[in-house]
């Protein structure tokens, strides 16, 4: 395990535990993710993946353990704090406001404004349009008219808007909880391609997916979570799907302490 380079890591998690009453959702999880790295996380249903991501995103308070974002220790759980410190989350669904256009969705909650008459703050439509276009160009995402409501987009395009939105403010860590689960394999492909391009922007990515092939082709490292613990940490290039399945199920693996 990497313990020496804590200060350089984008996120560092130490002995993180969460109990829901008698249920131990995570039982002492530790790992680091470094800038420019895609880390995949796999595990059976109920292994604790979502709980883990929610704790890092500030949505759920850990029972014990510590989280550092870019070296800063998280004192109290808050999604706004996490966002302000560079943790972004891409959700499987419910990610966008269907009735707003692409540009409005990318800037939702962080609109750029300027002073206008009688001193009120007016949305800077032109600036936001230009920045959104810039961002999408940089990410090589091609979309029709940015003033089109996102209802008009396909599932894959919507997820790309959600991902573009998550990296718009130079985050340290982007957590993606099953970003392709709602998409067909062919629609998910451009989304995975986009995810692979993100490390160029020096962002760390935690990718959670039940599609092992997606994780194997996209991630650099893979963490296997089993019953709230990390059962294995492997390089994606050194493992295949069958082996991964065995690790997830805990077959043919010596008992962990």
């Amino acid at each position: 395990m990497t313990t020496s380079a804590t200060t350089a890591s984008a996120v560092s998690v130490r002995d993180l535990r969460k109990n829901y009453g008698a249920v131990e959702a995570t039982r002492g999880v530790s790992f680091d993710i470094f800038p420019g790295e895609i880390v995949g996380m796999v595990g059976d249903n109920g292994a604790g993946k979502s709980t883990l991501t929610k704790m890092i995103a500030g949505d759920v308070a850990p029972s014990s353990g510590e989280i550092r974002i870019g070296g800063t220790l998280v004192q109290s759980s808050s999604t706004t704090w996490a966002r302000d410190h560079g943790v972004e989350m891409v959700y499987q669904d419910l990610a966008l406001c269907d009735n707003l256009d692409i540009c409005a969705n990318i800037f939702l909650g962080r609109e750029i404004t300027q002073r206008a008459f009688i001193g009120h703050w007016k949305l800077s439509h032109d600036t936001m349009m230009a920045k959104a276009q810039n961002l999408l160009n940089m990410l090589e995402v091609k979309l029709p008219n940015l003033r089109e409501p996102v209802t008009a987009l396909s599932g894959g395009q919507r997820q790309m808007v959600a991902i573009a939105r998550s990296v718009a403010y130079e985050p340290k860590l982007v957590i993606m909880d099953e970003p392709t689960a709602a998409l067909s394999v062919s629609a998910g492909q451009p989304v995975l391609d986009l995810i692979r391009r993100l490390p160029q922007r020096n962002v760390a990515i935690l990718l959670i997916s039940h599609r092992l092939s997606d994780v194997l082709t996209t991630a650099d490292r893979i963490l296997v979570l089993r019953r709230g613990k990390i059962a294995a940490a492997v390089r994606a290039s050194e493992i295949d799907e069958a082996e991964l399945l065995r690790l997830m199920a805990g077959i043919n693996v010596p008992n962990e302490d």
């Binding site: 999604t79 419910l94 939702l108 909650g109």
Partner: peptide
Amino acid sequence: TSARRSGI
């Protein structure tokens, strides 16, 4: 949900 997650 998305509005809340966006900090609104």
